[in-house]
Design a protein around this nucleic acid. Structure first.
Lengths: 205, 205
DNA sequence: GGCGGTATGATACGAACGTATGAAGGAGGT
DNA sequence: ACCTCCTTCATACGTTCGTATCATACCGCC
């Protein structure tokens, strides 16, 4: 990691905000150091380079999200309920850590392959969904189909809807910053996912 | 638009490739002009600025995709079939115009609001899906729920899965460049969407 | 043949970038 | 008091960027 200090911490915090807002190329070391109230040379001194600081930020943000999500996946209950809970958790985590989807967005736009930590986290999440689906297929509550592909359908909805919150608001007039709207939205996605997976039609409440 | 000429056309073509690969900031006018085999000053002369050339590229690519999609939406048949066809068309159009999702990806990562043309196109597509859903609800083939939110669930799958083709391959080992895999993937999404929307369980083939 | 307007050419300019350099500060140990 | 080491600071360097400038080349037309 890095030697923590008030200056280094301030740099990470400022970098997290600026990188998530403007991406790697769009954020200058001058902007970061100014925002952190430090000298221009502080990034080189504490982290070695701008790129190294970026990696620290990415790893930290990803770690926080990952812990939260893996906990959400380990609740008991029937598979369909747990999948619904996982979808809900995805929405919640992204809402609590708004920097994360932004960073992912910028990261996707870069040419280079995903950093190892991010790739593993993604793989773990899609794997978790797939195994929940497989479980449901075994107990007969989920219809047949390739669990991995079905997991992709499930996961793509919270991911895209959160990542693209801005165009969704502009194009579909759905404002996710409004808690009531958000609740309706998340509820609709959970219901859609359950209906898309269920082997038998579920009873409507 | 712009005064078409062999030089201007070559610039647009080179810019389309480079902008979609590396984004606006990641593409220099020097790279574009070199790629197009023209002089450094050609962009300023023919388009006025790099930004103006970018807008031309964006509008052209979007136009092509839009024409293709709106045609796909106007086939006859029951709503669920037409929605399935639209999802299929989304996948096909993105595969035929790989520059488009890339450009969208980069555009989402920029801070500025979506260009008007893109915003309208997005709005039109989500609106098309929503009205198809509403139609299905009226004839009883689609379950109840907010059509706009359900449309978001439907549209997010082809969009995200295509935009994130690279991380999907890295994280879920699903290679969309392989036609057989792609066909299975698209089929799975169509089936998931139908199941997610249908009022009654559909017969399995 | 010469002329005028359009297009292309080489080059210059000022700004912003990431990083390197070396001096100045400041607290803790002896 | 002084030396040491970690940190902060101002500033310089070399590159790359988008655009401006102005000379040269091309071509239909009188």
């Amino acid at each position: 990691m890095y030697q923590s200090s008030s200056t280094a911490d301030a740099l990470v915090e400022a970098a997290r905000q600026l990188f998530s807002q403007h991406g790697y190329d769009g954020t200058s070391v001058r902007a970061i150091t100014r925002h952190a109230g430090t000298n221009l040379g502080a990034i080189t001194y504490h982290f070695g380079s701008k790129e190294a600081l970026y990696e620290v930020v990415l790893a930290a943000v990803n770690q926080g999200v990952d812990d939260r999500l893996m906990a959400a996946a380990q609740t008991p209950g029937p598979p369909l309920d747990r999948i619904g809970g996982f979808v809900q958790a995805l929405f919640d985590v992204f809402a609590e850590n708004p920097d994360y989807p932004q960073l992912i967005m910028h990261e996707l736009a870069r040419e280079r392959p995903l950093p190892e930590g991010l790739r593993q986290a993604l793989e773990r999440r899609i794997g978790t969904l797939a195994s929940l689906i497989r479980e449901g297929q075994e107990d007969g509550s989920i219809r047949t189909g390739d669990p991995m592909l079905m997991a992709l359908s499930v996961g793509s909805q919270p991911l895209w809807i959160t990542l693209a919150a801005r165009p969704v608001q502009e194009g579909a007039r759905i404002d996710q910053t409004d808690p009531k709207t958000r609740k309706r939205l998340v509820g609709s996605v959970v219901e859609f996912v359950r209906a898309g997976l269920a082997a038998h039609p579920e009873k409507r409440e």
